[in-house]
């Protein structure tokens, strides 16, 4: 780091030597993270490994105990919060849709950082909100109330709000929780489209390692409050890594659809070997 606190490295978003804690409980220590520009970075790790906490720190929602987050070379805490919100968006895990708010109204709220007291709704705002609703496929829900939507629709509406903010960097905290598999894939495909077509830098925390491997162009694996590996999933995801981080014995095969690593958990050792014989016997009969 140079003397004036400016960051010599060219990455738009990066973090140095972070220690993260809630009250007195330390969640993660000495995290060094680089988010490659234009990447779809995915953070994975077991429950309570500090991955969401890391994301919250990157989005300046949590002040690190030590270390610092840099946005465009400046300490993120030194920038005005509206200024940050024009460059970096965040889809938090828990947001409350106010009672009786319509989809269009909620999405429009994403324009806040571009507005002022006397510039509350410009044509640019209008355009950005409409575009965000179109690209997430919620434009035909515009006048519906958010409370009456399904979980999948609601998640797309929140995503639309984050998109309306039109930030070059977008952080997503577990955007697929509470969704069934089809809706999970739908949301992730949407993210991949945003990344490829709009050249946005995305950082998502995901639960599912296979989804992470498939969609990430840059993968960060966390375990026990530390970063265990970062890089392309093909290079870093091995059976040893998964066993080491998640405590899961598994085999890694190649995803037949896209060629990325696919984690197949090892079959469990049966506690009652005799129970296994029944289907086996049946199988013999049919053979």
């Amino acid at each position: 780091m140079s003397e004036d606190g400016a960051d010599p490295q060219p990455y738009r978003l990066r973090a140095d030597n972070l220690t993260l804690a809630y009250d007195n409980r330390t969640v993660a220590t000495s995290l060094g993270v680089i988010i490659p520009d234009g990447s779809f970075t995915v953070v994975v790790g077991p429950n309570a490994c500090g991955k969401s906490t890391l994301l919250r720190a990157l989005a300046r929602m949590l002040r690190p105990r030590t270390g610092a987050v840099y946005l465009d070379g400046a300490l993120i805490t030194s920038l005005p919060s509206k200024e940050v919100a024009r460059r970096l968006g965040m889809l938090p895990q828990t947001s409350i849709a106010p009672d009786g708010i319509t989809v269009a109204d909620l999405v429009a709220r994403g324009r806040y950082p571009h507005q002022r007291l006397l510039r509350q709704w410009s044509r640019e705002d209008e355009r950005a909100a409409t575009e965000a609703m179109t690209s997430t496929g919620v434009d035909d829900l515009a006048d519906r109330f958010v409370d009456e939507l399904s979980g999948g629709q609601r998640q797309r509406v929140w995503l639309a709000m984050a998109l309306a903010q039109q930030t070059p960097i977008l952080l997503l905290d577990e955007p697929t929780t509470f969704l069934d598999i089809a809706h999970q894939v739908e949301v992730l495909d949407l993210c991949a489209d945003l990344h490829e077509e709009r050249r946005r830098t995305l950082v998502a925390v995901l639960h599912d390692l296979n989804h992470a491997c498939r969609y990430a162009t840059h993968l960060i694996v966390m375990g026990g409050g530390r970063i265990v590996a970062q890089g392309r999933s093909e290079e870093i995801v091995t059976a040893e890594l998964v066993e080491d981080v998640f405590g899961l014995r598994c085999r890694i095969i190649t995803d037949p659809e896209v060629g990325t690593p696919l984690v197949v958990p090892a079959a469990r050792a049966r506690r009652h070997p005799e129970a296994a014989r029944v289907p086996a016997a049946k199988a013999q009969v049919t053979a």
Binding site: R56, M61, E83, A85, M90, G110
Partner: peptide, 13 residues
Amino acid sequence: EMGDDAARAVGVP
């Protein structure tokens, strides 16, 4: 009203 994180995300101090 949307929660502290959501407000912070759009740049409210």
